[in-house]
Amino acid sequence: MKIILHLVEDKKFLQASINKFSIDPSIRNIFISIGKLKYDKKGSTIIISLPTIVINKFIRFIHFFVRGVVIHGFGNSFFNVQFNKIHNKVKILGIFWGFDLYSINGSKEDFLMPETIKMNRGSHNFSKKFGEKKFIEFINQRIDFVSTIVPSENKILNSHFPKANFKFTWFSYFDLENDVLNGIQNKKLVFSGQNILYGNNSSLWNNHIDGIEEIKSFKFNFDKIICPLSYSGSVEYRQKVIEVFSNEFKNKFRPLTSFLKYSDYLQLLLSCPYVFFNSKRQIGLGNLLFSIYLGSVVILNSNNPLFHFFLSNGIKVFSIEEAQSSESFELDISKNRENLGLLFNEEALKERSLQVIQNLIEE
């Protein structure tokens, strides 16, 4: 049985990763995360948690039993993993999630706006931690395949690594029917309010405070600003966003600081026919897919690769400038749903997953 080894930092994506890579029964997948020793097994899939020091002791020998390695995001816990020790016989796929893509060879602040930069207290620059020269050599010389969350981000990798030999592929974690919609496609849903959903979490990437003037300049009428702040980011940043927005919008601002039951969250989304993300980088794709399917007017910063990705695939989203000049929006919800399905339906993701697996195991 051929083996693919996975390094996973964010366990929220673990089950989705297992589902997508388990479609080929001839493959055994081993998923490893950083942490105290722990072992689990689901069918033929093995899930292990290991300290970094243990991973580094065996990583140079994995070519004796592993055909391919998948690095699921270059996160903080991987800073000390000796990826460059992986033998040349083993094919490597690096999946860039976004936070890593935008800081590997530059500054996080390139994607933050002025007010948010003032609150930036750290960096996610993986290449600096890994050793910039080693990291660049690793990407240029050892990565065989790369995937970004959406193909429109590929040009960012090309600009960072013009000498690299990797090939682009496209792996997606969540399919529309099973992972995003959770059965709502079989229900009749109607918007019940006139609110704006603003951002997807409490991370700096959302440029929350910098979006205040844009929101105030929108031509359309809205009741409240619903702002998810229940995860990611620092407590200090979250409190600052709440303070500034509460002072500016008073009772029109509603922060979400704790997780809601799915049914309650769905009702909240149905009160938000408008969705605004002020991020200059790809973020919150699952939230956006859900909102587009519902029929929300999705407003994105035009610097965000998702803006161009959606438009180039016939999925209508709107720029900040359009929201500043229009009181109403023409939106073909059926067409948006159809085009979302072409990209993210279960069969499309199965085909992409099988191609990724084939790339990793072929001689």
Results as ranks from 00 to 15, higher is better:
residue 135 F to R: 04
residue 308 H to T: 12
residue 233 G to A: 09
residue 122 G to T: 00
residue 311 L to D: 07
residue 152 S to Q: 11
residue 161 F to W: 08
residue 217 S to D: 15
residue 317 V to M: 00
residue 102 Y to K: 03
residue 1 M to Y: 10
residue 23 I to S: 05
residue 138 F to L: 05
residue 105 N to R: 07
residue 291 S to V: 00
residue 351 E to L: 13
residue 321 E to D: 12
residue 73 G to K: 04
residue 115 E to G: 02
residue 69 V to Y: 13
residue 163 K to S: 14
residue 24 D to I: 02
residue 137 E to Q: 15
residue 346 E to W: 09
residue 258 S to Y: 08
residue 104 I to R: 06
residue 346 E to Y: 15
residue 207 N to H: 15
residue 26 S to L: 09
residue 251 N to M: 02
residue 11 K to S: 14
residue 81 V to G: 07
residue 68 G to Q: 11
residue 110 D to E: 06
residue 152 S to R: 05
residue 19 N to P: 01
residue 158 N to T: 07
residue 90 V to W: 12
residue 333 I to C: 01
residue 84 N to G: 06
residue 301 N to V: 03
residue 42 K to E: 14
residue 197 L to I: 00
residue 191 F to V: 00
residue 35 G to L: 08
residue 97 W to K: 01
residue 327 E to Q: 02
residue 336 N to V: 00
residue 11 K to E: 15
residue 260 L to S: 07
residue 105 N to G: 11
residue 241 V to D: 14
residue 66 V to D: 07
residue 16 A to I: 02
residue 201 N to L: 03
residue 237 Y to V: 01
residue 220 F to K: 00
residue 123 S to I: 00
residue 303 N to E: 09
residue 293 Y to N: 00
residue 230 S to M: 07
residue 125 N to Q: 06
residue 339 N to C: 03
residue 352 R to Y: 13
residue 124 H to S: 14
residue 348 A to E: 12
residue 7 L to K: 05
residue 85 K to G: 06
residue 363 E to V: 02
residue 240 K to Q: 14
residue 41 K to W: 11
residue 142 R to C: 10
residue 145 F to P: 05
residue 279 S to M: 04
residue 133 K to W: 15
residue 77 S to E: 15
residue 159 S to I: 01
residue 195 N to D: 11
residue 315 I to A: 02
residue 267 Q to E: 15
residue 139 I to E: 06
residue 279 S to F: 09
residue 107 S to E: 15
residue 11 K to N: 13
residue 137 E to S: 14
residue 128 K to D: 12
residue 83 F to E: 07
residue 64 F to L: 15
residue 183 G to W: 11
residue 106 G to F: 11
residue 6 H to Q: 03
residue 168 F to W: 12
residue 224 K to Y: 14
residue 107 S to D: 14
residue 310 F to W: 05
residue 341 G to Q: 12
residue 270 L to T: 00
residue 88 N to C: 08
residue 255 P to S: 10
residue 52 T to Y: 15
residue 8 V to P: 02
residue 156 I to F: 13
residue 121 R to N: 13
residue 210 D to N: 09
residue 286 G to S: 15
residue 137 E to N: 15
residue 15 Q to N: 14
residue 207 N to Y: 10
residue 88 N to P: 04
residue 307 F to K: 09
residue 156 I to Y: 06
residue 91 K to Y: 08
residue 63 H to M: 09
residue 355 Q to M: 09
residue 21 F to Y: 14
residue 261 K to C: 05
residue 130 F to N: 05
residue 104 I to E: 12
residue 138 F to C: 04
residue 58 F to K: 03
residue 258 S to L: 03
residue 256 L to T: 03
residue 65 F to P: 01
residue 306 L to M: 13
residue 238 R to V: 07
residue 243 E to W: 10
residue 2 K to A: 13
residue 6 H to M: 06
residue 38 K to R: 15
residue 199 G to H: 15
residue 280 K to C: 02
residue 114 P to K: 10
residue 184 I to G: 03
residue 238 R to N: 10
residue 3 I to P: 00
residue 265 Y to P: 08
residue 245 F to M: 03
residue 119 M to L: 12
residue 316 K to H: 01
